[in-house]
């Protein structure tokens, strides 16, 4: 590793610890995943991945994660907007509680959401009267992923919104723009990169989420079975090859999402001129 000179000590120790730890914990196990997949022939790999149940689970995972991220894009934006710009009572409390999905173990979220949205639950019974079932259908998955993904959008948009120069608005106002025009033409455009980043983060998290989903999903194969659950099912049936192939596919998707998110964050930095 080539590095430029610094009088600060500890590069060797720090890089030693970092590289050793990451190799042992992240790199080698991930290589195992790739390696195991190569034990499958290409035909087997294709057969595993194009199995109708596998395809259905990918469709469920992607569609529900997409729907939840889209809804969160809107809801998260509204919350960030209100928290940054409007005075409101108990703001500190509301702001702190946004991070609840980060702090609450997913299993807890899972059982409580299942209880709330079950046909006889507090919220579920209300929807049952309308003829809508939420728990044990793909809708339930969307609800769980909305819970999990909400803070991602709020927390990426909030700082950018805070740093918006109030002179921009004053300038637009002095030029005679209406509030709606100011929002649409002046305030909203600089927020787009941050909004997209939040959306991508929520989507990526939703794709891989397991704990909060399985209790509310019903887990019916072909209908409400998500990919992570299918991997576990395959493992329990000792179908290691199948689990590995699906896992590799998920890993590839995760890499792509990471790449997209990095690019979006670079774009946000360029727009806001910040780290």
């Amino acid at each position: 590793m080539k590095r430029s000179f610094s009088i600060l000590p500890g590069f060797r120790l720090a890089s030693g610890i970092t590289l050793f730890y990451l190799s042992l914990l992240v790199l080698i196990p991930l290589c195992a995943l790739v390696w195991k997949t190569t034990e499958l022939s290409l035909d087997e790999l294709v057969a595993t991945l194009t199995n109708s149940r596998v395809l259905a689970s990918f469709r469920v995972s992607i569609l529900t994660a997409l729907a939840a991220a889209l809804i969160n894009l809107f809801l998260g934006f509204v919350i960030a907007w209100v928290l940054v710009r409007y005075p409101m009572p108990f703001k500190r409390l509301f702001d702190a509680v946004i991070d609840l999905p980060f702090a609450l173990p997913t299993a807890v979220a899972g059982i409580v959401l299942a209880a709330l949205y079950a046909p006889d639950g507090w919220i579920g019974s209300f929807f049952t009267e309308l003829g809508i079932r939420i728990a044990y259908t793909p809708l339930g998955i969307v609800v769980a992923l909305m819970f999990i993904g909400l803070p991602f959008v709020v927390r990426t948009v909030e700082p950018v919104l805070q740093d918006l120069d109030s002179q921009l608005e004053e300038a637009a106002q002095s030029l005679g723009a209406s509030p709606w025009t100011i929002f649409r033409r002046v305030l909203f455009p600089p927020l787009i990169p941050a909004l997209l980043t939040g959306f991508a983060l929520a989507f990526a998290r939703g794709l891989g989420e397991y704990g909060s989903v399985i209790f509310i999903a019903g887990n019916m194969p072909m209908v409400s079975e998500i990919v992570p659950l299918l991997i576990i099912t395959k493992l329990e049936q000792y179908d290691y090859a199948g689990a590995t192939a699906i896992g590799l596919m998920m890993l590839v998707v995760a890499f792509i999402m990471l790449l997209v998110i990095n690019m979006l964050q670079a774009w946000t930095r360029k727009r806001t001129g910040k780290l």
Partner: peptide, 30 residues
């Protein structure tokens, strides 16, 4: 410190965040 591969290393550290926890379990089983 400035060194080559700094960006890649940062990404590698972030990687577990974007991987499904189920995959995290799976790789150790493997």
């Amino acid at each position: 410190f400035q060194f080559t591969g700094r960006g890649a290393l940062t990404t590698l550290i972030d990687l577990p965040f974007s991987i499904s926890p189920v995959i995290a379990g799976l790789i150790f089983v493997l």
